[in-house]
């Protein structure tokens, strides 16, 4: 089992400034799944009932000189502490900028190693960062879990395949910051959030307790996938009756999720996506949020990067 690669300058900045801070908010530990073509960060895919978060990069988006080999079709997966990974990348960056001597002089190499830590009898696996400065080299060892077994990798791959299912209707959130501000404040009022999404391009979020009903409706959003014309007789109704009617017509779906999960998924805005879409998976299996990234300076989707979250549904509509 071998893995060795050089992080590109672009890859370092993607990880350090955008993705790792976002992933750090999703949970302390994630799986890093490396294949021949992709590096994938996965939260909660194998265990737990938290928010599943999947950040997938084509190897060219992060690395050059990417070498991987294993007896399991060149696939390697292990668990890693995101905050430690972020710290290692950050300090490597500061070493590079401090002692760097042109872009080629300070390449950041990462590799998988086994080392005998002090006071231990068993060698332990690490992801090692090696930064070559002007006169010195700095090596940082980030502890990782034992690599996942063949069966566990298969399980991870299956979970990943299932997680690729797209909702039939996706609506684009107009202003992620605004939604996040709103949900942060909503958290004080209740724990359960009803989310309904219609083919007309309506996103309706609502907390309802015995003492209060608090909600927000965003209308006329961009729809991807199945869409329908909003019936004109619904125009002057309240947000609640509008979404009830859309659901009864079969033009909308509604699920209940945890407000905490919803607000956590919005933390992904730290990865600076160019837009975000919400959708409900078939049969209300989960609430999916898909973040889209553009090739810098264009409105074209950057297919080498993908990020999406799946929020567990507490009550299937």
């Amino acid at each position: 089992m071998k893995f060795k690669a050089f992080l590109t300058e672009h890859g370092v900045s993607l990880l350090e400034r955008r993705f790792l801070p976002a992933l750090d908010k999703m949970g302390k530990i994630c799986h890093l799944f490396l294949t021949r073509d992709h590096a994938i960060f996965l939260h909660n895919l194998l265990n737990g009932d938290g928010v599943q978060c999947i950040a997938q990069f084509r190897k060219e988006a992060l690395f050059d000189d990417y070498r991987i080999s294993s007896q399991n079709e060149d696939r390697i997966a292990f668990a890693i502490d995101v905050s430690l990974l972020l710290r290692a990348v950050r300090s490597s960056v500061s070493i590079c900028t401090e002692f760097g001597n042109g872009p080629s002089a300070n390449r950041l190499q990462i590799k998988l190693v086994k080392k005998l830590p002090p006071n231990c009898t068993q060698p332990m696996p690490f992801l090692t960062f090696e930064t070559k400065g002007y006169k010195s080299a700095v090596i940082q060892d980030v502890p990782i879990s034992k690599p996942l077994s063949r069966a566990q990798v298969l399980e991870l791959q299956t979970a990943l395949d299932i997680a690729q299912d797209l909702p039939q209707t996706l609506v684009q959130v107009p202003d992620l910051n605004q939604l996040q501000n709103f949900v942060e404040r909503m958290k004080h009022v209740g724990d359960l959030l009803n989310v309904s999404i219609s083919k007309y391009g309506d996103l309706h979020v609502q907390i309802s307790t015995t003492l209060i009903t608090l909600g927000a409706e965003f209308r006329k959003l961009l729809v991807i996938g199945e869409q329908a014309e909003a019936p004109s007789e619904d125009r002057n109704l309240s947000a609640q009756s509008r979404s009830e009617r859309a659901i009864s017509r079969g033009d909308a779906q509604s699920v209940q999720v945890s407000v905490k999960h919803f607000s956590r998924s919005l933390q992904c805005h730290l990865a600076k996506p160019d837009c975000a879409f919400y959708g409900i998976a078939p049969q209300g299996a989960c609430l999916t949020v898909i973040f889209q990234f553009f090739i810098p300076g264009t409105r074209q989707t950057d297919k080498s990067i993908s990020l999406h979250c799946r929020l567990p549904v507490l009550d299937p509509g």
Partner: peptide, 11 residues
Amino acid sequence: SLDACIYAEIR
């Protein structure tokens, strides 16, 4: 705002 509305009903 016409296309975004926040509402609340407090008991």
